[in-house]
Amino acid sequence: MVSEFRKDHELHKRRFGRNMGLGGVLIAFVLLVFGLTIVKISEGTSLQGFDHVVRPELILEAQ
């Protein structure tokens, strides 16, 4: 017996649209956080000054 694929109900199209919308929002959020990270790191001065062990020679205020 050959099973037939049923035609998509309008409801499935609506749910598909909703899932695509949410997927788009999540991807955009990931890209946003990534972009923000890049900007913060490239703008950051002497980040190493606070990395694991304080290195006063890299902190401007300490000099």
């Binding site: 409801l11 649209g17 909703r18 919308g21 949410l22």
Partner: peptide, 12 residues
């Protein structure tokens, strides 16, 4: 009845 189910735009 699912005819009144939300679309993505409704959440916007």
């Amino acid at each position: 009845d699912h005819s009144n189910e939300a679309e993505f735009g409704d959440y916007i």
